[in-house]
């Protein structure tokens, strides 16, 4: 807990990576956590064959944990194959945050991953033959 709000997390919050929105994105998805008002939108452009993430951006507002962990997630998944991104789990995000979170705050940290996975899933459902 002592290390939670350390330099790395605050740096991601104050200087979020891949922050903004993308025009002509293949995937745009947004969700919020009504309990605390955290909101995250993620836009994704896929490579031509649709197999990997070519460009990604997030926007939103909320607590430091939700926004910084989304920024960390962007760094992690940029240019990765979709298959790998789909395999990301709760523990991967917790590892990115790198400091223990109480149960109530885990939810904040997971919002970015939840939005990304839900967006990807919807895209795959819409594009499967």
């Amino acid at each position: 807990m002592e290390d939670l709000y350390r330099e790395n997390l605050l740096d991601h919050y104050e200087n979020p990576r891949h922050h903004g929105t993308l025009e002509h994105a293949d995937i745009s998805h947004e969700e919020s956590n009504p309990l605390c008002g955290d909101r995250i939108r993620i836009d994704v452009k896929l490579s031509e064959d649709g197999s990997r993430i070519a460009e990604i951006a997030f926007s939103g507002d909320g607590c430091i944990i939700s926004q910084a962990s989304a920024s960390m997630l962007m760094d992690e998944v940029d240019c990765k194959p979709i298959g790998e991104v789909q395999k990301l789990e709760r523990q991967d995000v917790l590892d990115m945050v790198g400091a223990p979170l109480t149960a109530a705050r885990v939810k904040c940290a997971m919002l970015g991953l939840k939005v990304l996975k839900a967006g990807l899933y919807q895209y795959l459902v819409d594009h499967q033959k």
Binding site: I65, T102, C108
Partner: peptide, 25 residues
């Protein structure tokens, strides 16, 4: 400062407050 971040930081000092919408959305 988001109230949840404040609540977590105060908890580190042993100070227990509530953060959220307090069941009054």
């Amino acid at each position: 400062i988001h109230p949840h971040d404040l609540g977590t930081l105060l908890d580190r000092e042993g100070v227990a407050i509530r953060a959220g919408h307090h069941c009054a959305q």
